[in-house]
Design a protein around this nucleic acid. Structure first.
Lengths: 158, 158
DNA sequence: TATTGTTATACTCTATAACTATA
DNA sequence: TATAGTTATAGAGTATAACAATA
């Protein structure tokens, strides 16, 4: 389906001479998303240097805390990861004693995930750090702009 | 419509009793940016599976092509990387014969970067793929919404 | 002293493939 | 057959520290 788009557009109203002429790099929306993400990621890591947690790890702790007993596959789907990637993250968190695996009564293939008390404590501190991080991020926008931005971003991944 | 109540309460003038009470994970702007980025990244990789290039590699090729003779440090600044990370990317591209290093006449500490003919050819095909990728991405928005989104995102990294 | 490139090292994330045990 | 978890493997990006050459 993707190729057809390119070809039909090539015979559009004002066809560019060269299909590779996509303008300048600063006109690429994906480029802006990347740079914004990198900036947010970097500030996040600075804010979390004491806790030594990545964004993904915090997301996992948060989701497990809100959904105790969740399975790895559900987490993977929710966070757009595959199973192997999820394994690595869960292993690291379990190795640090923040999270534990348990059996699933209904389906013995599945494992259930819970935070340990240490994990809940770390998550609590992580949320305070996120509050600080979000303030840094949202200080650029009015409340209405934040809603607009979230709404536009959601259209990408839903 | 998602969670205006929680949102406004969390960022109200009166500080909440518990700093770790930041609402729900879906109210975190950084989380939305992350998910959008992951979705864009994944589609990008699918679109570029033939060319076997990452977003960062394409960004580097593009910037070097637009600024022949640029130094690694300039690239690093432009793409928000440190020097060591830049080295790795440049090494991979040079190893594939897409890019070459040269000396700098003015400052012998610096190296100058140029695309090889093969690199220019790959970039040309990459731009066509980006055009396709951007269409997939921008199809969700009106032209005005794209401008709005870019403007909001730019405020993050500038 | 400061900057540029470089090397070495380590960690996280990502992805694929193959294996097991269950369903 | 299909699914959930697991293991092994590989590559890309990120970051820090240290070093040599140069400014």
């Amino acid at each position: 389906m993707r190729k057809e788009v390119v070809e039909s557009a090539a015979s559009n109203v004002v066809p560019p001479v060269d299909l590779s002429d996509v303008g300048e790099i600063r006109d690429i929306l994906g480029f802006h998303i990347r740079l914004a993400y990198v900036t947010v990621y970097r500030h996040f890591m600075e804010t979390f240097s004491d806790l030594d947690l990545t964004q993904k790890q915090v997301s996992v702790l948060w989701l497990v805390s809100d959904n105790p007993g969740v399975a790895q596959t559900d987490l993977a789907q929710r966070l757009h990861m595959d199973r192997a990637t999820t394994m690595g993250i869960i292993n690291r968190l379990e190795g640090r004693g923040l999270l534990r695996r348990g059996p699933s009564p209904q389906d013995r293939r599945r494992k259930t995930l819970y935070l340990t008390p240490a994990g809940e404590e770390v998550l609590k501190r992580a949320k305070a750090a996120i509050w600080e991080h979000e303030n840094w991020l949202k200080s650029r926008f009015t409340k209405r702009e934040v809603q607009t931005l979230m709404g536009l971003l959601d259209r990408i991944h839903t």
